[in-house]
Design a protein around this nucleic acid. Sequence first.
DNA 1: ATGAAAGCGCTAACAC
DNA 2: GTGTTAGCGCTTTCAT
Lengths: 328, 328
Amino acid sequence: MKDVAAAAGVSLKTVSRVVNGESNVNDDLRSAVLESIAELGFRRNASARDLRQGRSGTIGLLLEDVADPFYSMLSRAVEEVAREHGTMVFAGSSAEDPDRERDLALAFCERRVDGLIIVPAGTSHSYLLPEMRAGIPAVFVDRPPGDIEADMILTDNLGGSRRGVEHLLGHGHRRIGFIGDAPEIYTAGERLRGYREALESAGIAFSDDLVTQAPPSPTSTADALDRLLEGPSPATAVLCGNSRTTVSVLRELARRSARLALVGFDDVELGDLLQPGLTVVAQDPGAMGAAAARLLFQRIAGDTAGPTQTVTIGTRLIPRGSGELPAP
Amino acid sequence: MKDVAAAAGVSLKTVSRVVNGESNVNDDLRSAVLESIAELGFRRNASARDLRQGRSGTIGLLLEDVADPFYSMLSRAVEEVAREHGTMVFAGSSAEDPDRERDLALAFCERRVDGLIIVPAGTSHSYLLPEMRAGIPAVFVDRPPGDIEADMILTDNLGGSRRGVEHLLGHGHRRIGFIGDAPEIYTAGERLRGYREALESAGIAFSDDLVTQAPPSPTSTADALDRLLEGPSPATAVLCGNSRTTVSVLRELARRSARLALVGFDDVELGDLLQPGLTVVAQDPGAMGAAAARLLFQRIAGDTAGPTQTVTIGTRLIPRGSGELPAP
DNA sequence: ATGAAAGCGCTAACAC
DNA sequence: GTGTTAGCGCTTTCAT
């Protein structure tokens, strides 16, 4: 910038004014400056600017896994909103590791991101308190933060799950299984609650025998199906607590050539091409990402006075066949 | 940092030494400093550090679409390698828009990223020359850059496509269609070449009637299938040029209850659960991302002397049923 | 409308 | 082993 100023025969400040599109610059000088800029291939150094201004025009996005379709759609939605605000996005994957989450979050803070969007992996987030007090707002997505209060964007897990079970009940099923993720995971717990509530509202006793809670794996899924399908009164339908579980169950059912009415939580690409088509309770990761980003930019803009907000995003039941198989 | 120094009763430089883990600091002073750091909630300002050091510990990753499974897997692989190098990743989607690609790339440069990984959308990249000369290395992935020379990581599109067609030929097919993406797209062109070569090697005349090149859409796919299936000697098999096309073709075939041997380029989640299972020529986006990142960090580390490199990553044919349907 | 000077928070280079 | 000084490239403030 100094070089540009010298080449154009003006002061540093004039160049700065031109670069920042300030209006009060003589047209002749402006064009001289622009010319020198083009000639020298000058590009403003954002680090210097950030240092001086105290803000960076970046946000940090902390996901469980950038490669997971759910999070990558969320990510794209965040990116689009950030773009509207002239902001770039740092993305990182916690890989469900609380330490890695923390390291990444603090690295983002060190980079002086203007704000943070976090899908929490850990259960404690007090490590963020100093940063938040120092003016870095954080919005949590998909799961609530551990031991602090903060804005969050959640799916209506309970309602969606309830809806899925009601759908199966509506098709005559009475023995409905639930195969969900590990109970520590917030969404898994909520979805189990929804399952339970739907049964209870229908006057059907909840039975532990029909419930499995474990990280999806071929073995755990096989075990779960064993438990559901054996015995005197086998399950005729199942609600899968997340998409990995759904896929795992579909594979296992295909292997056994078994049929079971099935509703999955979370949509799955190509679900419509399966036979039967996969009925799902679909979340809207795009809506969640957009909502998180909008709320974050609201906070960044200074709307920091109000209480923390919780936005709940609804689900959509998409019937495609597997959830409409009638009870025998 | 100044505050920390004051609180600990040492000089700025000593704090800096502690923060950077330099060894030549007295243990007493070190612990005093660490205490003050904890007390004050100090976190080093990366902007200031970057400004001083001239490097930022960040790289820019420019994809077509962060939400596309292919790119999101690539993205994750890049992230993992970057992590090994203590580097954060800016990710952005060009949305196949050359202007947006350019804006993002230059915004990354303004942020003084240490390097750039680009899936090019546009056909001209000379805008990067000044930046590259200024010391920001760039590695192109999936498609070559437009009008500059640079490192690139490509899939063996030609070989993979050839392999797919040979597979269909091996199952007795002689009328094999090709439905690919728009001809401007590099990968689409290469895959068509592979199709063509395979036919020619088998002594089968190439026929324009069997080829469609268009962005996948329900209409274009329906048209393509019309052309393939009507007439006196309809196609008995088809090679789909990318996963969006594959999905589109599968939907259309399902709608018509038509059957056609099919090999898709690019793997698709749940391809094994379809009936018949989907035979694909699988790319390895993770390997591509990792290779790109490794090469980039090599360049960043100063290995800038050698000539530009082109790394070609092989494909894998995964037979699952659809590609093994015999010719009538 | 333009410019000069100070300083953002840090590290490199050089004392001591 | 520790401290001092200068300066990275920009914006802010204040003067003209």
